[in-house]
Amino acid sequence: MGLKVRFHRVSPEVLSIELEGTSAAWLSYVAEQLESQFSSIQDVVFLNGVITVFSTELNLILSELASFFDSMDETYESSFRTWYIPIWYNGLDLQFIAKKKGMSIDQIKEIHQKEEYTAIGYGFLPGFFYSSGVPESLDLPRRSSPRTRVPAQSVAFAAAQMAIYPFETSGGWNILGTTPYQFFDPNKNPPVIVKAGDRLRFYEIDESHFKVLQLIWETSSDREKLLSHVC
């Protein structure tokens, strides 16, 4: 079998492996396999069809890595989940988005909830994951000037990608609303729940529901369960 792969040595400890035309879900699976099969790999990151491997013993595992990829094909055991994410549509950009798209706010909400999104990987900030699946009818480019303050847990999109801000930060994406769930917890291992390949669905909640769910999330011992259905 074998895949078309290109190895690119970036530094003594960093190797990038280009895998053309592969999905984020598959890359996520391969990254997991690499981490479990090679104990000397310290970090694996995947993005845009490239897997990057960090190892202080890279020279020792180069040939094994080559045979690992030789024996790989694009099949994998699917273990991807669907997560249901509550959103209170209180976003700073909601009016702006509706106006830009020539629709009512209700129509924007409806389009947002109708679609299913796919998590494609982490980047930018700890626990910040990108998702694909933003429909053209909703999509907008990044704001021309980024906001200096985007509230924590903002649900926002830009350039065909959806994301949830794990912290208050600056950012240029169009903010739809806020989720009561915190998707990154540095005190837990793993610190995240969503992995690349997982599906996301959003459902609307109001302010009082938001406050209830926020409290439930903070005290919950089974956050995966909360995310597994509409609450």
Binding site: A31, Q42, D43, V44, V45, F46, F54, Y122, G123, F124, L125, P126, G127, F128, F184, P186, P190, P191, V192
Partner: peptide, 10 residues
């Protein structure tokens, strides 16, 4: 820290 690049942790 190592091992957390995959969650975008520096």
């Amino acid at each position: 820290r190592t091992g957390f690049f995959k969650y975008a942790v520096p």
